[in-house]
Design a protein around this nucleic acid. Structure first.
Lengths: 166, 166
DNA sequence: CAAAATCGCTTGTGCATTGCAAGTAACTTT
DNA sequence: AAAGTTACTTGCAATGCACAAGCGATTTTG
């Protein structure tokens, strides 16, 4: 759709760099689905309630891969499907998403689950580790045979296998 | 330009709420200028090196005010000028900007000053207090008579009166 | 094993947003 | 009084986006 190969940055201010990568209405929602909702396939992003158009989704996935925030690979047991995953660079976006969620919850009307929000502010390191383990742990391979296994956290609770906004 | 009065949210997911307010290439750059660069007037945002167009700037300032992230008031000694300021809601965006800056610095090529970045990760609370005091302290009134006075921090250094990306 | 369904896209088609250049009204400075 | 500044608005062309439909490869179903 749009070729973005050698677009020069408007500036190298880190905020501007972020905005040239994430400064649109959709990109971070895909990251949200990957990180919080265990959505790893094209159809899953289409199913999100914000209703992204398929051509936009296709474009954003391509850009995310160009920016090395996600990787794509074919599903091990179904050649039609593509398995999208966050790279370490992509997983590092978690704190940014936390701050967004906390700000929105404080200042706007949202439907985020309170327990998760509390962990974003008070138990950030453990939550981060959990999300990371959960993401890396549930490969397409393991998913194809058993339903996603939530990683138990150190308090013995279930892992972050919950939708972000109920 | 665009009327956005009663646009219903696509969802009440806090991330989506944020993206409907900030999900574009320009809005957070204005907040950056307000928070880090002591830029409080229309012409100042136009002068930023990302080169925002004046109609877009006008539109974004209007939306920021609609969302109660900034306030506008006439300059006390020059009726042509408008003084834009962050509200508390707007100042609360600082941690989000910190995370963006830290992510970009870690994963992309940027030109952010290292000392400031270090404080974003290691001295966040004090930096936050400084930025807040600095912003509230330098009113248009005081600016019109004396050059902006940086607020000294607890270590006796000069305040955050530095550009964000040199 | 043929037909139907699924999956990850791509291709139109219009409408909305953006970027650029130029203007303008209300001031202030010279 | 003339020239500059400031905060915008307006017009227009280019780009981006939303919506609907289609398509090739694969898997599932009867």
């Amino acid at each position: 759709m749009t070729r973005n190969a050698t677009a020069p940055r408007r500036s190298n201010c880190p905020l501007n760099v972020c905005l040239e990568i994430f400064g649109d209405r959709w990109t971070l929602l895909i990251v949200r689905d990957l990180l919080f909702k265990q959505r790893y396939e094209f159809k899953d992003y289409l199913a999100a309630k914000e209703k992204i158009a398929s051509n936009i989704l296709s474009d954003r996935l391509r850009r995310l891969e160009e920016n090395q925030i996600i990787t794509k690979s074919v599903h091990p047991t179904d050649a039609r499907r593509v398995d999208y995953r966050l790279t370490d660079k992509g997983l590092d976006l978690a704190p940014l998403l936390f701050e967004m969620a906390l700000w929105a919850t404080k200042h706007e009307e949202t439907d985020a689950p309170t327990p998760l929000l509390r962990r974003m502010s008070d138990d950030r390191e453990n939550l981060l580790a959990e999300l990371r383990a959960n993401h890396l742990g549930s490969t397409a391979e393991s998913q194809s045979h058993v339903p996603p296994q939530p990683v138990p956290n150190r308090a013995g609770h279930r892992g972050p296998n919950r939708t972000f906004s109920k």
